[in-house]
Each structure stands twice: as structure tokens, then as C-alpha cells.
Design a protein around this nucleic acid. Structure first.
Lengths: 209, 209, 209, 209
DNA sequence: TATGAATGAGCGTTCATTCAT
DNA sequence: CATGAATGAACGCTCATTCAT
């Protein structure tokens, strides 16, 4: 517990590759079987390495899963930030954020499955990590909403609750895609979801020209 | 796996009470520690009975958790059905459904925590059970939406996706209450959430008199 | 352990009947499932009484099985003694003993199954009990053989080993009947076995008139 | 139940040695305490390894015992086949078979104790396994007897019953040696038993020159 | 670096036995 | 006498983690 794995943060590309190989194997196993149903043996067998090798790259099983969660949300945040950059109004920024998040979830099915379904509730560490990430997302969205209200773009409302509702709508659509294949391709959900969320906030959507 | 536990579903009120006592203890433990972090020993110690007693009332650990999930959704469905009975329009029915569901979740914090956070992904049995329940809820809501569209109360949209978005918004608000105490009391979220969802569907809300 | 069951040795025929009922149920269960695969619950369910009732008649599970073994060998010994009474030569006594033993085993299939297959090796108490009984039988047979040798009816041989071989031949035929239904009816084995054993001892058999 | 243990049947002599070490410990415990009285903990403590190690070599407790039974009868059959090879008449083959079997039982006291006393009736798997082995032995012996009858070496008789009686005589002598030390050394029983069995079949024994 | 055999704490579950009613 | 719910010690087995090679 707490000991750094010996090979974390080395530069050797051979080690980087092996790390990715293990992380990919872990993602596949966690996503398909669930965190507690996956054994370290499952992961190393899929990766084609020995058990001990796993512990050269991860302090323990839970850290490997936490790394997957962080990787996903790192990308989500990066894409969200990038997508918002070009937008002028708060409403456009919100719409762009939703589109960007869905795009990343859609591009990383296994990671999405882990972060949205497999990890929550599975380990105190994940709950803590996810709580921190969610708070960040909520704050971002809630701030946008609060400012849009101030600008008169949205009617008065509790921004904190609306932000959570918005994120919940987004999550559930991703989960539905993961578990029930509704919709078959996640892109189909993008504009319907943007419309649902922005209307839900009280915006006129699609925006009147 | 296997046969019925001998004392499940007997009429004797003494046994009923014991069963409730165990179920309550299980709910508290599962909700606070998570399914896999909870041992049968934790449950029976909280209930103040011996290990063997647990197995007089439940076939095994997972069945006890499944019973909690079923109990929660049984109540949700019952309250939703009851609340809709008096309503005339589809939109009123949807609003009433949301209010009823939130009321039940709010009245059963531990069960909500288990069903929305602890159980999903923790065991194949739970995933199966929750999938069945969610499909039922989705169908209900999607049908309402489809009919409201047909009646011109809502603009054209993919009812299946909107239904999932609506449920996701609701779930996330409950989870937010469970984990971050936002809002402090779940009732505070009721009207904001109803507004978010019905506006999200494209309804004029609050309804013009 | 060691405490007398409260109802042992009472005269009330109602109690006797219940005791028989339990013993019969125990015999059926032990014979068909084996000693360790049989639970006290299995026995009382077959007997149609409550668990506690079992302990009114038996000190514990193993005593109930020991009682069955003792009952079987009690009958075997009684029949053997009775059958020998009318015989003149040692060889006739031996033949009569084998016939009597087979008759009792054939008449108490379940008890035979328990005493010959289920109990040996299943519990120290049974091993002890069976050892005592076997020693008694061996001594009886070995004595007959020794005397027959002394009388010149049999050639010189180690009576102790011959006695064991004789009993083993008998047991195995019974076991074969129990487990493989060879022969279909145990009576078919009687004269072949008598011939095998007496010839094995070195007697001219069937006896020259 | 389930899959192969990971380290069963590897070529590495280190692993072979471990396997033997565990098997020997298991044989000692099963032989002295009985199958159900022996815990896996007993075995690993005697072997001086950890609990988990046991499950690297055996799928479960019952498979370890089955392996012992199979090992014993594998050797019995091999020795019997080898001993018969040089013999000409059927009667010589039978006598050689008995001698070979006794020699193997005598050389593997613990395994004999398990196969003849501890395992029968202890687990359905063992009963099945032993039934298969016994049928093989019976068939072998019965065939010899039938052919000897056809060749006029033995009088007419039911070969199936005689075969069982012969095997029973042999088993009981071994059991007597195991449990009562009669005879003190199993070799002492060899010729008396051969004589008993062949005479029992109706042969003139010892064979007239 | 990589290996994989070894570890052992810990868990779910069973069942012989008891005792209040 | 009879009941059967309650008990709790004990067992088989798993799997995250270690470390000698």
C-alpha cells in the first residue's frame, strides 16, 4: 500500500509500451467482468506477461483501475476545454462541452464502462477519485449555468441542481449505449442530448437565429 | 444458488420481524461499505444474531442484496403507479412519476444508495436484475413521451433517448444527494428536477394556465 | 457427547415406535447417501418429525448410526448361533454360519449397506465398534477352523488368516449384491459361496456322502 | 470441480517433488484420520507448505484423494499384468495375480488403507472411481476363471461370484493386516491366501507335480 | 527486468446440537 | 414430549501480493 511501483514514470519506450499493454488488458477485463470479478491473473494472462510483472507497473490492483479512470477523465477534460475555446456564448460552450464529452466516451468504450458502471461503489478509492472528478465537472457546468442566468440567457434556477441533472442525463445515455446499445452508435445521441439538456436549462433550443 | 432458505416468507410475525431486522442491517452495511466490502459477519453482527441465522432467511449474500433492490423498486413502481392515477395529461403523469420516484428514494436512503451506486457492476445477478427493472422504467417513460408527442404536447424527438436522459437526470440528482448532500434534503430537488425534465422534453413548463 | 438421550430404554410402546421410525429413516438415508452426506435434517424430514426430536432418542448423529450397526450384527450373531445349533460337524457349522449370515444381510439391505460400506472408515467410533464385532466373528470362525483341523477335517493352515479370507469372501459377495446387483438376489450366492469357502479351507465339498 | 490445477503434471522436477510431498502428506493424513476427519490444513501442515499451495497442485480435496486411489490401482494393475506375463496356465496366472496384488498393497500401506477402508462410501466420486476399478479387476479375474473352467482346470461354477469372493478374501486379508496386524507382515499371508483362493475355486492346490 | 511458485489472511457457507416455548 | 429457530465453530477455497531465481 502506498509503495511506488518501481517502473512508474520511466522514459524507456519499451517500458511505456508494456505499461500500455497492461493497462489495455486491465481495461478489457474490468469493463467486461467488473472490478471484483476480475483477478490480477485475468489481466496478466490477457496481457501475456507474468503475475509479478503487473506489480512492476502498478502498486496494486486498485491503482491500475484508478489509472484507467484518470486517463478517461483526463481526456474528457482536455477535449471539453478545447471544444469550448472557440465558442462565444455560455450556451454554446455548454453544448460544445456535451458534444466533446460524448465524443470521448464514445471513443473509449471500455474506459467509459469502467468509469460509469464498474468502478462506482466498487472501492473507497474509486469513490473518492470519482467524487473529486465529478465535483470538478459539476463546478464547471454549474458556473456556466450561473453565468448564463446572470446574462439573462437562462431563467433563474438552482445552478448546482441543474448541473447535476445535465451530467446525469449525459451519463445515462452513455450507459444505455454501453449496456443496451441504445442508441447503436453514440453519435446518434449527441444532438438529441444537447437539445434535452439545453431545453432543460430553459434555453430556447435550437437557438433562434 | 440452490434452494429456498427455510424461513423466507413465513407468516409468523416473529419471523417477519427477524427478517426485517436482517434486511435492515444488510441495507446499512451494503450502503455504507459497498457490496464486496461487506461481509456476512458484518451484517449479522449489526443485526445482533449468529452467522447461521442469516442463512435461515437468505439463500446467500447476494440474494440478500437482490432482495433490497427489489424492495426499493417495488415501492418506486407502486408509488409511481399510484401518483399517476389521478393525472389527466401525459405531462402531468410524467411530472407525477418524477415526484413519486424522488419521494421514495428520499424515504429510503440506504436502499437508494445500494440500488444506484453499490449494486451496479458489483455482481452479474444485480446487473441482470437492474437491467430488467430499468427496462421497465424506460418503457414506461418512453411510452408516455411517445404518446405526448403524438398528442402534440411535445415536439418530435427520439422517445427512447429522451426517456433515458430523463431517468439519468433523476438518478444523478439522487446520487448527488446521497454522496454530496446536494441538495441537503431531497425534496428541494423535486420541482427543479421536474422543470428540468419537462422542459428538456420540450414542454412549456410550468404549464401555461 | 456421552449424555444419555432422555428417552432411551423407556417401555412406552409409543416411544418405541417413534424410535423405530427414526432408526428406519436413518438407515435409509445413511445407506443411500453415506454417513457424512446425510444430515440430521435429512433423517428427521424422512421420519416426519422435528429436529429436536432426534435428540430425544439419540445422543447424537453417530450414535444413531452405531445403533444400526449393532442391530445388524446382533441379528447376524443370533441367527448364526441358532443355525449352528442343529449341526454336528464343524464343517456343517461353518456352512450353516455362512448361510445364516447371508440370510440376515439379504433381509436387511440398508443395514448391510451401512455396516459393510458406509460406516467403515467414516468415524473412529464405527471403526472401533466394527473392529470389536469383527474380532468376535473372526474368533468364532477361526475357532471352528482350528478345531476342524484338529479333528482332521481340514488340512493344516493358519486358522486366523483363513477365517479372515472366508469372511472377506462373504462380505465382498454381499457388497457386490448391494452395489452391482450381482447376483440379483442374494440367495443365489449362498451355495456358490459356501462351496468357495469350504473348498478354500481345504474341505471336500460338497461333502462325500 | 472446475479446471485443472495450474501445476499438475508439469515436467519441472522441483514441481514433481512438491507434488509428491503433498501427495505423501495427504496419504498419511487420509489413512490415519479418514477422509472426512482430515482437513486440507492437516495436509499442508504435515507437508510444511501453505494452504494455497495445495490448490496449485490439486483442484480440491477430493481430487487429491482420488489421485491416491488411482495411483495405488495403477501400480496394482501394472504389477499384476507383469506377474502374469511369464505364467502358462490360467491357474498360475491367478496365483501370480494374487501374489502381485498383495505385494503392491503391502508396499503401499497408506494407499491400501485409503483405497480399501477410508475412501469407500466417503464420497460419491470415490464410489464411482472404485466401482470402475473393481469392475476391471472383477472382469479380469472372472475371465480367467471362466477360461479355466472351459479348459477343465476348474469345476463348473458362477465365475462372476467366484471372482468376487476371491477378491473379497484378498481385500479382507489386507484390511486385517492394516487394522489388526494379522498377519504382522503381509507376505506371510501370500501363500495361505493363494491356497485358500485356488482351492476355493476348486483347483487342486498346491498343484500336483 | 521478468518470472511464477508460494503465501496465508480472510470469506461464504454448512450443519450438529441446544433450549425456550 | 415435541418443536424448530437459533447458534457458532469449523471448513474448503480464493486471490492479491511477495520474492528467490
Amino acid at each position: 500500500m502506498g509503495r511506488q511501483p518501481p517502473l512508474a514514470g520511466r522514459d524507456d519506450p519499451r517500458l511505456q509500451e508494456r505499461y500500455e499493454q497492461l493497462l489495455t488488458a486491465a481495461a478489457e477485463e474490468f469493463a467486461t467482468r467488473g472490478y471484483h470479478q476480475t483477478t490480477v491473473k485475468d489481466i496478466v494472462e490477457r496481457a501475456g506477461v507474468a503475475t509479478g510483472t503487473f506489480y512492476l507497473y502498478f502498486a496494486n490492483k486498485e491503482q491500475s483501475c484508478a489509472a484507467l479512470i484518470e486517463r478517461l477523465y483526463g481526456r474528457v477534460l482536455a477535449e471539453v476545454v478545447a471544444a469550448r475555446a472557440g465558442k462565444r456564448t455560455k450556451l454554446d460552450k455548454l453544448a460544445a462541452s456535451i458534444r466533446a464529452a460524448l465524443q470521448v466516451f464514445g471513443a473509449h468504450r471500455n474506459l467509459a464502462h469502467i468509469a460509469l458502471v464498474r468502478a462506482p461503489g466498487a472501492h473507497p478509492l474509486f469513490d473518492e477519485l470519482l467524487a473529486r472528478i465529478h465535483r470538478e465537472l459539476w463546478d464547471l457546468v454549474a458556473e456556466d449555468i450561473a453565468e448564463a442566468i446572470a446574462e439573462g440567457l437562462l431563467p433563474p434556477q438552482r445552478a448546482d441542481l441543474s448541473a447535476r441533472a445535465l451530467i446525469g442525463a449525459l451519463y445515462e445515455v452513455v450507459i444505455s449505449w454501453l449496456q443496451a446499445e441504445v442508441p447503436a452508435r453514440l453519435e446518434e445521441a449527441v444532438e438529441p442530448l444537447v437539445a434535452f439538456c439545453l431545453r432543460g436549462l430553459g434555453a430556447a433550443w435550437p437557438p433562434p437565429r
